[in-house]
Design a protein around this nucleic acid. Structure first.
Lengths: 158, 158
DNA sequence: GCACATGATGTGCATGCGCTTACTAGCTTG
DNA sequence: CAAGCTAGTAAGCGCATGCACATCATGTGC
């Protein structure tokens, strides 16, 4: 048990490959990776403002702007001022955006299903269940726990 | 089954958190992320030359140099000219390097084990087995399979 | 009403990385 | 031996990112 590989060591190339597989699909629909993340968050999330969105998809709030501009220009989302708080913009995914999101997702998942099909039934289920469980965990519960923790969050390479 | 989340969507934050958890450990030992990857490859791999190393850890061969410099300066690896091919440098992990690598790994895995312990027994086993299986798969088998594939590997955001 | 906080946006800086080019030393093959 | 290839090194470009501010319009608490 002690000589297992690190999780990250195995996850990294896997994620890398999955992302590489997504790239052509996204390109074909002319949507960027971040754009796709945004559509996803808006489609099945309760995200309304840009700040919340940035938080939800783990992006920098200043970076989001250009992404939203493109999505809006493509008619995939709308960005209307909130009558309650006129500083804020309410983000909504359009019907077209929803359709786009779902058809992209279908393609991506078809690819992933092909991959998952290679796994033994039992492992596949465990894998997905574990993944979903870990995904629901708040970030702190994964990161925290080591005795040192966030005291040393500096970059010390120089 | 069709409305499952994308794998990447779940893997990304997970990996992110795991890496965040590694950071303080690595910092405490004054080893960079890439440095740790190098130590790992040298410790349990049959990698001898820099080119092979770069390939193994998925890094650029020009980028590796500075990393090796630091590791060498820290006495964790040696870099001796190959008597058979005097262009090449044979990389070896030192005893100290091995010790360093293993103690870092122990800390990281202790953290991961804490996390895995939250999963139901069956899921945990499936998860690890699936992960190992997927990790052994060559990258092409994950990326390929979509009808489009690598015809469109350009960046089309501009 | 005024001080302060907040949402969206824009600008600028430093970093890290992948990619390319160039150069040297040393193999290899015809 | 000459031509061509390979390993390591160095320097630079372009891109994406994270971070820090700055700005402006708007809300909120005292």
């Amino acid at each position: 048990m002690t000589s297992r590989r690190d999780l990250a060591e195995m996850l990294h190339p896997l994620l890398q490959s999955l992302i590489a597989a997504e790239r052509p699909v996204l390109a074909a629909h002319r949507v960027s990776m971040w754009g796709y993340a945004v559509l996803g968050a808006l489609d099945d999330g309760s995200v309304r403002t840009q700040a919340a969105l940035a938080e939800a998809i783990g992006a920098d709030k200043t970076r989001i702007i250009g992404i939203l501009d493109k999505l809006q220009a493509a008619g995939l989302i709308t960005r209307d001022p909130d009558p309650q708080d006129r500083r804020a913009r309410i983000l909504t995914i359009t019907g077209e955006g929803r359709k786009m999101r779902r058809s992209i997702r279908a393609e991506i998942q078809a690819n992933e299903d092909r991959l998952l099909a290679r796994l033994p039934e039992a492992d596949r289920h465990g894998f997905l269940r574990a993944l979903q469980a870990l995904h629901r965990l708040p970030r702190e519960q994964i990161t925290n726990g080591s005795p040192l923790d966030r005291r040393l969050t500096q970059r010390r390479d120089r």
